[in-house]
């Protein structure tokens, strides 16, 4: 074989190998990517402590919290910073209860009220406490790959299957290597940008990779951003189920 022909053969072989390597990645469907991503994001239980640094036109303030979640539909958030010490947010399925130490009533939120801001931050009660699978609520389409902050990602478009889903459209960028969310943009049904969340730090906990620093911007608020940081986290460890009750909330 002449050297020129041999070189051509080698080059062709390299192209074939490269394509072969790329095929598994491209062969993934949007649903499969979401499933792999949610393996890191959804847990049987989770306990964490952390803080929210809220920046708006009036300055920056920090709120600290303890959080406990059981499955997809039960979670309890308790604020520990001095200004809001003892205030709790309990989620039971699709209903949220707010407990304030100085109030005689527990405030019950449901429906549109779940979109209200938590402590004036860029996170809503739904953002903070909801964790059901996106595959239940959205049709997922893989739109391609993009590089985000130096990482190769899948760009996914999630379109709500029902009208009662809080964010009708989401565009998510999922790390193609670790299958963790790098960025999410949330849109209204008419395509108006509502919020953007970027995950800037991760931590390995067991065989899962958890986003521990999230930056959320609510475009409905001017000059506003909230940095959500998880300091400590424990996953899939036993949790007292009695925590998730109205009696316990006010105890």
């Amino acid at each position: 074989m002449r050297p020129c022909a041999r070189r051509l053969l080698v080059a062709a072989g390299a192209v074939v190998l490269a394509l072969a390597a790329a095929v598994p990645a491209l062969a993934l469907t949007g649903d499969e990517i979401i499933r792999r991503m949610e393996r890191h994001e959804r847990h049987d239980s989770m306990q964490s402590t952390g803080s929210m640094e809220i920046t708006d036109r009036f300055g920056t303030r920090t709120k600290s919290f303890m959080s406990t979640a059981l499955g997809d539909d039960r979670s309890l958030l308790e604020f520990t910073n001095p200004e809001e010490a003892g205030q709790k947010v309990l989620r039971l399925e699709d209903e949220i209860y707010l407990y304030f130490p100085d109030s005689e009533d527990v405030i019950h939120l449901q429906g549109a009220a779940l979109r209200d801001s938590v402590l004036g931050s860029d996170f809503s009660y739904e953002d903070m406490t909801g964790s059901s699978s996106r595959l239940n609520d959205y049709e997922v389409v893989l739109e391609g790959t993009e590089e985000i902050d130096g990482h190769e990602t899948y760009r996914l478009r999630l379109t709500a299957k029902r009208r009662d889903v809080v964010y009708p459209v989401q565009v998510a960028w999922v790390d193609s290597e670790r299958f963790v969310t790098r960025r999410v943009e949330l849109f209204s049904r008419r395509g108006r940008a509502l919020k953007r969340m970027a995950v800037t730090e991760f931590r390995e906990v067991g065989d899962k990779v958890i986003g521990t620093r999230l930056e959320m911007s609510d475009f409905m608020k001017k000059e506003s951003m909230t940095v959500f940081t998880i300091d400590d986290i424990a996953i899939d460890e036993p949790v007292d189920e009695s925590l998730f009750s109205l009696e316990e909330l006010t105890f």
């Binding site: 009036f58 707010l98 304030f100 100085d102 109030s103 005689e104 405030i107 402590l119 004036g120």
Partner: peptide
């Protein structure tokens, strides 16, 4: 009757009183 008002305070915290 009694009712609970939720507000934002001067130290930018959330407060609810009945």
């Amino acid at each position: 009757d009694k009712l609970t008002i939720l507000t934002r305070t001067a130290v930018m915290s959330t407060q609810a009183w009945t």
